[in-house]
Simulated assay, not measured.
Amino acid sequence: MLILGRREGDSILVGDGVRIVVVSCDRSGVRIGIEAPSSLKILRGEIAEQVAKENQRAASTPLGSEWLAALGTPAAPVFPPTAPGTSA
């Protein structure tokens, strides 16, 4: 892990086209800005971990008919009434 000291307004370049800028610093923390190509996915670490845990939980759940039953059966389609004198 590379640890750098940066001040407000300083930036760090990562690879081709990724720039991390220190926007502000105070006692509550550091605000950073990330400039990157739109094709690059950027996620906060805690969100990526939460998604990974949920994917693992979903993969370990047995796929039975119980969850389908919990959703209920689909309702019968409702057709608009036909006008008198017309055939359906």
Rank of each mutant, 00 (worst) to 15 (best):
M1R: 04
M1Y: 02
M1W: 02
M1H: 05
L2S: 10
I3Q: 04
I3L: 10
I3P: 00
L4Q: 12
L4G: 02
G5W: 02
G5V: 08
R6K: 15
R6E: 04
R7M: 10
R7N: 13
E8N: 06
D10Y: 05
D10M: 05
D10F: 04
D10R: 00
S11W: 04
S11L: 05
S11M: 03
S11Q: 07
I12T: 08
V14T: 02
V14P: 00
G15P: 12
G15A: 03
D16Q: 06
G17V: 05
V18R: 02
R19L: 04
I20E: 00
V21I: 15
V22P: 01
S24C: 04
D26A: 12
R27V: 10
R27E: 14
S28Y: 04
S28F: 05
G29E: 02
V30D: 02
R31E: 08
G33A: 14
I34F: 01
I34R: 01
E35M: 03
E35D: 10
A36M: 01
P37L: 02
S38Y: 04
S39V: 05
S39T: 07
L40R: 01
L40Q: 02
K41Y: 00
K41C: 04
I42E: 00
I42S: 01
L43D: 09
R44V: 07
R44C: 03
G45C: 01
G45T: 06
G45R: 08
E46M: 07
I47V: 14
A48C: 09
A48H: 13
E49W: 01
E49V: 11
E49D: 14
Q50H: 06
Q50P: 00
V51R: 15
A52W: 08
A52K: 14
K53G: 00
E54N: 13
E54L: 15
E54H: 08
N55L: 15
N55F: 10
Q56F: 03
R57I: 13
R57C: 03
A58M: 14
A58N: 13
S60R: 14
S60E: 15
S60H: 09
S60W: 03
T61C: 13
T61K: 15
L63W: 10
G64R: 05
G64H: 05
G64P: 05
S65F: 14
S65K: 08
E66S: 15
W67H: 08
W67L: 11
W67M: 09
W67T: 10
L68M: 11
A69C: 01
L71R: 06
L71Q: 10
G72K: 02
T73N: 10
T73L: 14
T73S: 13
T73D: 10
P74E: 12
P74S: 12
A75W: 00
A75H: 06
A75L: 13
V78P: 00
V78F: 07
V78C: 02
F79M: 13
F79N: 08
P80H: 09
P80Y: 06
P80L: 14
P80T: 07
P81Y: 06
P81H: 07
T82E: 12
T82H: 04
T82I: 12
T82A: 14
A83Q: 08
A83T: 07
A83C: 01
P84C: 07
G85I: 09
G85W: 10
G85P: 06
T86Q: 11
S87K: 11
A88T: 11
A88S: 12
A88E: 06
